[in-house]
Simulated assay, not measured.
Amino acid sequence: MERNLYAPPEAAVADVEPVFEVPDDVLKKIRQAWMAGACSTVITLAVTLLAIAGTSIAGFDAWNMVDVLLVGGLTWGIYRKSRFAAVAMLAYFVISKALMFAEGGKPAGVVWALIFFYLYVQGIRGTFQYHKLAKKQ
C-alpha cells in the first residue's frame, strides 16, 4: 500500500475523562448537591432581579448578583466533580446563613437550610469518593 501524501495527519488521541466504574450512589450525591446549588442560584437570581426592579425583599439589592455568580460558579464546579467547589459551597452556605441569622435575629427557613446543608455535605462526600475511585484506576 502506498501512503497518501494528501491525507490529513492522524494522531492517537487519549480520552480526557478517565474510564472507570463509578457507583450510582456516588454520582447521586454529586448530582443532588449540584441540583441544590442550581436551585439556590435560580432563587437568588429571581429575588435579586425583583429587588433591582424595585421590590424590597429581605434586603436584597444589585450586589446580590455577586452571590448569584459565586454560587453559580461553585455549582458548576460541583457538577464537574470538584472537591474544592463542594467544600467551598458548604462553607459559603454556612457563613451566609450565619450572617442572615445575625442580621435578622430569628432563624428563618431552618428546615430548608438543613436540607441544603445535608445535600452539600453529601456533595462533599460524593466528590471525595469519586476522586478516590479515580485515583485507584
Results as ranks from 00 to 15, higher is better:
Leu5Tyr: 05
Tyr6Lys: 12
Glu10His: 09
Glu10Gln: 13
Ala11Trp: 07
Ala11Thr: 11
Asp15Ile: 03
Val22Gln: 06
Val22Pro: 00
Lys28Glu: 08
Lys28Tyr: 07
Ile30Asn: 03
Arg31Trp: 04
Ala33Asp: 06
Met35Asn: 05
Ala36Val: 08
Gly37His: 00
Cys39Ala: 14
Ser40Ile: 10
Thr41His: 00
Val42Ser: 04
Val42Tyr: 04
Thr44Ala: 07
Val47His: 02
Leu50Gln: 11
Ile52Lys: 03
Ala53Pro: 02
Gly54Asp: 05
Ser56Trp: 04
Ala62Thr: 08
Ala62Cys: 02
Asn64Thr: 10
Asp67Trp: 15
Leu70Ile: 11
Leu74Val: 06
Arg80Leu: 09
Lys81Glu: 03
Lys81Val: 09
Phe84His: 01
Phe84Lys: 06
Met89Lys: 04
Met89Phe: 00
Leu90Cys: 02
Ala91Met: 08
Tyr92Gln: 11
Ile95Met: 09
Ala98Asp: 06
Leu99Arg: 10
Leu99Gly: 05
Met100Ala: 15
Ala102Phe: 12
Ala102Leu: 14
Glu103Trp: 07
Gly109Pro: 02
Val111Gln: 02
Val111Thr: 09
Phe116Glu: 11
Phe117Ser: 14
Val121Ala: 14
Gln122Cys: 13
Arg125His: 09
Thr127Pro: 07
Phe128Thr: 12
Phe128Gly: 01
Phe128Asn: 10
Tyr130Cys: 04
His131Gln: 13
His131Met: 08
Lys132Asn: 08
Ala134Tyr: 06
Gln137Thr: 08
